[in-house]
Simulated assay, not measured.
Amino acid sequence: MTEQALEKLANNIKKWGQELGFQQVGIADIDLSEHEAELQQWLDSNYHGAMDYMSRHGMMRARPDELHPGALRVISVRMDYLPPDASFANDLKHTEVGYISRYALGRDYHKVMRQRLKQLGEQIKQSCSELDYRPFVDSAPILERPLAANAGLGWVGKHSLVLDEQAGSWFFLGELLVNLPLPVDQPITEKCGSCVACITICPTQAIVEPYVVDARRCISYLTIELNGPIPEEFRPLIGNRIYGCDDCQLICPWNRYAKLTDEADFHPRTQLKSQQLLTLFNWTEAEFLQRTEGSPIRRIGFERWQRNIAVALGNASYRAEVTEALEQALASATSDLVKEHILWALTQQQQKSDLMSAKKTQRLIRSIEKGLPRDA
């Protein structure tokens, strides 16, 4: 194809992408060699924790042409997911409610975006029969955030997420690797400046330095990626977050410009949003599978779902019904992992009960003392 034809095709790709529901489409080359050293350092520091798949493919993440031979460009897309009435503050403030990361309240974004990317690929192929493409949505070893930044979709913030000055960070990323030498877009200058709000707000201090996240400390990792026990040092810090964490995005000043999504698939399911912890904890495995069908939550499985909620119940304010529910679950639990976290939660609830009793006793003593005559 001529340079002029490639230019026209690139413009059409962006138009077609927006027609398919992507809010932004950019094009970049696939040279990520400058990121290889920092990727290796991150792996050497074991910041990926138990996510063995992060190291399994070596430097392939920074070499897209090894992942898809013949690739020359990446078409990077953005799809907004911030739902209406997100209720961030209310859910985090009420410890008896389970907080689920806002990206996970609707349908699994992998399925939604991958289908649209395949449609985009096929539409491009109608104009260019020699096209060879491969779509990705968090589904292969590829550094999607640097690619998105190179394609002009935003810059990588200090929390390691991509930020756009007109859309914040409440969006998903997807890619098409293609074998066409399309004209590329220009990266955007990083605009975080001296702001460190995301680093400061992180409950577990997982952002160990600007742009570097120690996944082993991250609540999203602990509640989603980690298969085994959640380290005790982090359990009280998790609060009522039972699937993921949004704190670094909630505090980011750029997210005041975030747009609400029009995608009905990303709107919250009523059975997941702002639900009482005890309601969620009492689900049977069959109910869990049925109510999380088509949701990204399903991939953690029922065992980890119960593990996470047990921790949140331990962090909740003391209530007799919480203790009763935990004791009943302990008696019927078959998983050692779940039992461990229920026992921890019971200990936390007992400590809160003892503290309440001690405070009540102190108040009673003070009230009695106030009523005594001075010479008593």
Rank of each mutant, 00 (worst) to 15 (best):
A331L: 14
Q186S: 12
Q205T: 07
V322C: 12
E3N: 13
A5G: 02
A89M: 15
D354S: 03
Y53Q: 12
M51G: 05
L120P: 02
L237A: 07
G244F: 00
H48A: 12
F281Y: 11
Q41S: 14
A167P: 02
S101Q: 13
R56N: 14
H48G: 11
I242T: 01
L280T: 02
D108S: 03
V137T: 08
L326E: 10
G106V: 04
L92Y: 07
Q23M: 01
G193M: 15
L92N: 04
Y109G: 00
A167W: 04
A28K: 00
L237E: 08
A310I: 13
Y99P: 07
L260M: 12
Q271M: 10
T334E: 15
N282A: 10
H57Q: 11
H94Y: 05
S332A: 04
G228N: 12
C218R: 08
I342K: 01
L117T: 14
C245A: 14
G168L: 08
Q351A: 12
A148E: 10
T323M: 06
Y257N: 13
Y257G: 00
K360E: 10
D262F: 07
N11S: 11
E130P: 05
Y109F: 13
R304N: 12
A325T: 10
S220Q: 05
E66F: 03
C198F: 00
A333N: 02
S169I: 11
L117S: 13
Q123E: 07
L161P: 06
Q40S: 08
F288E: 04
Y257S: 11
A206C: 09
D65C: 06
T270K: 14
T270G: 09
I142Y: 02
W305D: 15
R102Y: 03
Q275L: 06
E7T: 14
S357P: 00
L237Q: 15
L355F: 04
Q115T: 14
N46H: 13
V156A: 06
D132H: 14
F266V: 11
G314V: 03
K158G: 13
H267P: 07
R319D: 13
V311E: 03
T2N: 13
G70M: 09
H267T: 09
C128M: 05
I201H: 11
Y109L: 00
E303N: 07
A258H: 06
R298H: 13
Q123A: 12
E36F: 04
A28M: 06
G371A: 07
I75R: 09
D91N: 15
G21C: 07
T292P: 09
D44P: 01
D138G: 13
K359E: 15
L92W: 03
N179S: 05
S295Y: 05
L313M: 11
L67G: 02
S101V: 05
L260V: 09
R216W: 13
W42P: 02
C128Y: 07
R298I: 06
E144N: 08
I238W: 01
T361H: 10
M113T: 06
L277D: 01
L82V: 00
M60I: 09
Q24M: 15
Q249N: 06
P183N: 02
L105F: 05
I297R: 14
V77N: 03
R235Q: 13
P69L: 04
G49V: 08
A215Y: 13
I365F: 02
M60P: 02
Q350L: 06
L92I: 01
